[in-house]
Nucleic acid binder design. Structure first.
Length: 266
DNA sequence: ATGGTCGAATGTCGA
C-alpha cells in the first residue's frame, strides 16, 4: 500500500495536479492539508471516477484537511479530542485541522495540519503547543489501548525538528517552527511511539518538503522540512520505501509543499 | 532589480 501526504494549498486550485499525482505514482491513500474549502465546495467527480473515496473536513477558507483512498475509508473521525477551538476570544471561527479514517488492512491514518503559530508572542503560538500536546495524548491513547495498532500521523507539522531541517538557522532567530518548545512538542509525539519513517532514507541537510513562494526560495534551494509521516511500531516495521516528490514543487501552479510518499507492506 | 508569491468568503490577511 502506498500512502502520501501533501499540503495542497487549495484543493480547488490544484485538483488537476492531485489527479495527475495519484496516477503518476499509483497512490492508494493521499492525505491533504490546507484544502481551503468546505466539502460542499469541492467537485469530487474526477476523483471518484478514478476509483477514490474522499472524506473532506473544512469549516472555513483557511485550513481544511482531506483523505482520499481507493483501499477503503471507514470510521472517519474529525478533530482531536481535547483540542481547544480557536480563537477562544473571538466568535464564529472554528478550524478544521485533523481528520482520520481506517484504510487498507486496518491502518488508521490521520491527516494533520498543525497550527502555524504565526509569531512567538501571538496567542496562536501557545495554541500550537497545546494542539501538539493534544495530538500526543490521542496518539498515546491509541498505543496504550493496543501496542500493535497500525497508526500513522501524517501532514504539515509546521515544526522543523532539527537544525538541518531549515536552510539557515540564523534566518529563524526569533521565529516560529524551530523553537525548543515546538521541537519538544514534536519530540513528545515521536517519544509516544511514532517514528519519522522517512528520515532514515532521506537524511541530511537540504532534504526539504516546503519552499516559500516568496524570495525565490525554491530555485535558491532554501526550504524547510516540516511535512512528516510518523508511524507506530507496527507501521515502522512495514515501511518498504519512501520519497519526497520534489518535482511537484516545480512549474506553474505548484503548491508550496512537496508530497511525501511512503510504501507499506503489512 | 538588494526584491522576487500565492489563494481566498480578496480591496487584506494568512501562510
Amino acid at each position: 500500500m502506498r500512502i502520501a501526504t501533501w499540503n495542497i494549498n487549495s484543493l480547488r486550485a490544484r485538483m488537476d495536479r492531485v489527479l495527475a499525482f495519484l496516477e503518476r505514482h499509483d497512490v492508494d491513500v493521499l492525505a491533504l492539508q490546507e484544502t481551503k474549502a468546505k466539502p460542499e465546495q469541492l467537485d469530487l467527480t474526477a476523483l471518484q471516477e478514478a476509483g477514490y473515496e474522499v472524506s473532506a473536513h473544512g469549516l472555513n477558507q483557511w485550513n481544511g484537511v482531506a483523505l482520499i483512498s481507493r483501499v477503503g475509508l471507514s470510521d472517519v473521525r474529525t478533530e482531536l479530542p481535547d483540542v481547544p477551538s480557536w480563537p477562544e476570544d473571538e466568535t464564529g471561527v472554528v478550524e478544521a485541522r485533523a481528520l482520520s479514517g481506517v484504510v487498507g488492512d486496518g491502518l488508521r491514518i490521520w491527516s494533520l495540519y498543525v497550527p502555524n503559530g504565526r509569531e512567538l508572542e501571538h496567542p496562536h503560538y501557545a495554541y500550537k503547543l497545546r494542539w501538539l500536546e493534544a495530538l500526543r495524548a490521542e496518539a498515546s491513547r491509541t498505543l496504550s489501548e493496543d501496542p500493535a495498532a497500525r497508526a500513522v500521523l501524517v501532514g504539515d507539522f509546521n515544526v522543523a525538528p532539527m537544525d538541518e531541517d531549515v536552510w539557515d538557522m540564523s534566518f529563524f532567530e526569533g521565529k516560529t517552527h524551530v523553537t525548543e518548545p515546538e521541537r519538544a512538542a514534536f519530540r513528545a509525539v515521536v517519544d509516544a511511539g511514532y517514528a519519522d519513517v522517512v528520515r532514515p532514507d532521506h537524511e541530511g541537510p537540504g532534504v526539504y518538503t516546503y519552499w516559500d513562494y516568496q524570495a525565490l526560495r525554491f530555485p535558491k534551494k532554501e526550504g524547510m522540512r516540516i511535512d512528516f509521516v510518523l508511524g507506530s511500531p507496527a507501521v515502522q516495521s512495514a515501511v518498504s520505501g519512501s520519497f519526497i516528490d520534489r518535482e511537484e514543487r516545480k512549474g506553474k501552479g505548484a503548491s508550496d509543499h512537496a508530497p511525501v510518499v511512503v510504501d507499506l507492506e503489512f
